[in-house]
Every structure is written in structure tokens, then in C-alpha cells.
Amino acid sequence: MGKIFDFEFMISIIPDIIKGIPYTIEIAVFAFVIGIGLGFIGALAKIYNVPVLKQLTNIYVSFVRGTPLIVQIMLIYYAIPIFVRLINQRFGTDWDISWIPALVFMLVAYSLNAGAYLTESIRASLQAVSKIQIEAAYSVGMTTWQAMRRIVIPQAIKVGLPVFANFFIGLLKDTSLAFTAAVPEIMGQAKIQAGRASRFFEAYIDAALIYWVICIILERVVAYVEKRQHLTEKTGGVKA
């Protein structure tokens, strides 16, 4: 008869579970970066009322927000192979999808998911910059892109920072679902270790603690960045 709770086992598998951290970070960072790109395009399509692109964005955002992440993961997981087979059939190519790692599917799934959520946040952040500043930028001769890059985006980042940071933390936790596609990230590693000894609770406690520590560190970083941003407010709006 084994122990009810195997503390030593719990400690002993921590190094194995930690091996999942790079995957977790990789998915979160990759999806965040691509998501910002997609979100920026979607936000511009909405702000500038770009025909077709705006409607596509609306459908995309609505679909992603209206379906569970796990379902999206499954759809991508099965959609890509079917898509490749269709291409093979149609163009007589001979692409083999078995060499594509599951991680790639997850990067696609999480990026698309992040892009939809970030579209709305980015749109709100860009629109928080007063229109008069944009007109002033045009009036001094800036192009649309110069006004965007020099005036609008810097202010939008500042406005949106708390939202983007919280989104990233949420995204990082959501990557735990990637284990369903056998990606050995934190949760995937925990599952592997747990299965080996049939000690699930111990392994999942490790996973929980690791996520918790990462999130605490991230929250600290965000707080630090925000504090630095508010420096000028402390100096009474004078450049430090």
C-alpha cells in the first residue's frame, strides 16, 4: 500500500516538469507576437472601415470569441492535415505532414486565438489617442504611417499596456491546453510524469506551482514597467 501523498515524488519530478517551460514560453510568446500583428491588421480594418477585410475581421473575431479554445485547437489540429491532403490532391504535390511537429499546429491555433482577442484591445487603444493629434500630425506634413508610428502607436501602447500584459499572462496559462496535442509543455510534462507513477495529484501540484511562480514573476515585471512609465507623472509631467 503506497503513501496517500508522496511528497518526495512530488519534489523529484520538478526538474522534469520544468523542462516543459520552454515550450510554454515559446507558444505564449510566439502567439502573442503574431497575435499583435493580426490584431493590428484587424484593428486597422475596423478603424478605417476597409471593405471586405472589415467583414472578415468581424467574422473571425466573433468566431474565436464564440467558441472554446479547446475546440479551436482540435479544429486546427485536424484541419491542417486535411488542408495539406487537399492541396496534394489538387496540385499533385506530395507533401508529407507527418514531419510537422504538433507544436507548429499549436503555434497556429494560439496565434489565431490571440489575434482575435487582441483585435479589440488594439482597436480600443489606438482609438484612445485623440483624433485632433492625428490631424495635427497630418497638418505638419506627416504621412499616415508616420503619424501612426510616431504619435499614435506609442500612446496606444501606453494606454493598452495593462490589458496586453494581462492578456499575455492569461495566454501563458491557456497554453496548458497544448498538452491535448501531445506538446510536452508544463502540463504535458506533468501528465507524462504523473502517468509513469500513477501519481496525478503530486504532478499537477507541481504544474500549478510552476505556473503560479511564472505568473508572479510576470506580474512583477509588468508592475515595474508601469511604474517606469508613470515616472513623468511623478515629476509633474516634466521629462526626467
Binding site: S130, Q133, A136, S139, I151
Partner: peptide, 10 residues
């Protein structure tokens, strides 16, 4: 402009 339009990040 009436409402100045200064760049607030500058």
C-alpha cells in the same frame, strides 16, 4: 487648432 493638437507623447 482650437484644441491645440499637441502630441501628448512629446
Amino acid at each position: 487648432f482650437q484644441n491645440f493638437g499637441l502630441f501628448e507623447n512629446k
